[in-house]
Every structure is written in structure tokens, then in C-alpha cells.
Simulated assay, not measured.
Amino acid sequence: MIKLSHTVAAAAFVTVGMFGGAAFADSGSDVARVVVNESRSQVTVVGEGSLSSPPDVMRLNTGVEVRRASASQAFADARDAAARLTKALLKAGVDAKDLRTNELSLGPEYDTYPKVSGYRAAQGVEAVVRNVESADRVIEAAVAVGEEVRLNGVSFEVSDSRKLLRAAREVAFKDARSRAEQYAKLSGRELGQVVTITEENVTPPRPVAYGAGLVAEKASISPGQQTVSVSVRVVYGLG
């Protein structure tokens, strides 16, 4: 379940039908502008909504790495270790469709070039953990496979970011209307119908990444919070 918290901010622009001239008012972070226009009475407000939610998906970037005297042995041992890692991740609750190979490499290593000292083989595995509460168990299962395992970091994300964005739009629109009502009252007018709505400055939630060192040192994985924000420009008529 996504838990939401929000903050709001806005700027407003007011166009009121009057009798000549223009006035400007300084209201700190919010700016109100009254423009004289006998043919059109409108108020334009920019509302902003920001919502936060704890991520519910973790991406574990792991894999195996071996060094052997021959290329064939290095490759064979890396494949074997990768198979054991995959089996451990499946047993820890990761679905087969949420596992993918993201690296496969084999190459020589040198003491002094061009003298080959051995061969390094690696195979990377990305695991999508859809139950963040099981993150520690999945990581521990991977590490238990053996010394060939490498942890290359984790990232967290919100699975249904569109739901979060829709909720942020509601916050922004409600804030815009509240501002418009205030400016209509201050100008002695009645707030009319919406003339135009423009969505702008959408900031979707971005995956939060942690390095391998943090993964290894923390006893418990903490996904933190992700935030999505959106601003909406709404023009209302004034009666």
C-alpha cells in the first residue's frame, strides 16, 4: 500500500476588468499581478503538489566473478557460480521472470603486458524484489552462495508511479483553486468557470541507488522515500 504525504506551494496571476492602469503586489514567494483589461476578467494561478511514498520495489544488482589459469575454466566456473546464485535467489522468493543476465564477460589479466597471468570471467544478475520487506533475506541468500558473488548495489522504485502522479495532480489542482478563490475574494469578484488548464514541471519519482559498500555495511536495507511533484496553471473567469 502506498502511503502519501504532501506539501503545496503556488504562484498567482490575476487579470481583473477595471478602468485603466496596472498594479503589482509583492507577496513573498507568491506573486500577484493585477492587469487592467475591460474586456476580460480572469485570474491565473499556478498550484504545485508534491507527494512522497516509500518505494515498494528493490532492484538488486549482483553477479559472480572468478579468476582461473585458463579461459575455459574461468568461463565454466563463472557459469556454475551464476547458476547457484540464480537458484539461491529463486529459493529466497524472487520470481523467475524478475531475474535477468546483465553482464557476461571473459578476458585475460596481465602481470606485465603482454604476459597473461590468468583469465577473469564474470556474469551479472539483476533481481527485481517486489516485496521490499524481504530485501535482507534475498541479499543474505545471494552472499551465502560463496566467495564468487559480487554485490554491485541496489536501487529502489515505486511500482505504480502513475498512481502517485495522479494524486499529485489532485493536490496541485486543489491548491490552484484555493488560491484562485482567495484572489477573487480579495478583488471583490466571484470565481467563475475554468478557462484553461496547463500541466507543467512534472517531476516523476526516480530510482534511488545505493552502492555496494552501503549494501554490505547495513544490517537492514532502508528504501527511504521517493517524491513526485507537478505544477498546474489554471485560468478562471471572474464574475
Results as ranks from 00 to 15, higher is better:
I2Y: 06
K3S: 05
S5G: 10
V8W: 00
A9P: 00
A9S: 08
A11E: 11
A11H: 02
A12R: 02
F19S: 08
F19Y: 04
G21E: 06
A25C: 11
S27G: 12
S29M: 12
D30I: 13
D30M: 02
A32K: 08
V36C: 08
Q42M: 04
Q42E: 14
V45Y: 03
V46K: 00
G47L: 02
V57K: 05
M58E: 10
T62E: 12
V64N: 04
R67M: 13
Q73D: 15
A74Q: 10
A76P: 05
D77R: 11
A78T: 12
R79H: 13
A88Q: 07
A88L: 10
A92M: 11
D95T: 07
L99I: 01
R100G: 13
N102K: 01
L106I: 14
P108W: 02
S117F: 06
G118K: 10
G124F: 02
A127Q: 05
V128G: 01
V132T: 12
E133Y: 04
S134K: 14
E147G: 09
R150W: 03
N152T: 12
S155I: 11
D160Y: 01
D160V: 06
R166V: 14
E170Y: 04
E170S: 13
K174E: 12
D175P: 01
R177F: 00
R177W: 01
S178K: 06
R179W: 00
E181N: 01
S187L: 15
T198R: 15
E199P: 04
E199L: 01
T203H: 08
P204M: 15
P205S: 08
P205M: 00
P205Q: 05
R206Y: 08
R206G: 03
P207Q: 10
A209F: 11
A216D: 10
A219K: 15
I221S: 01
Q225C: 03
Q225I: 11
V228A: 15
V235E: 08
G239C: 06
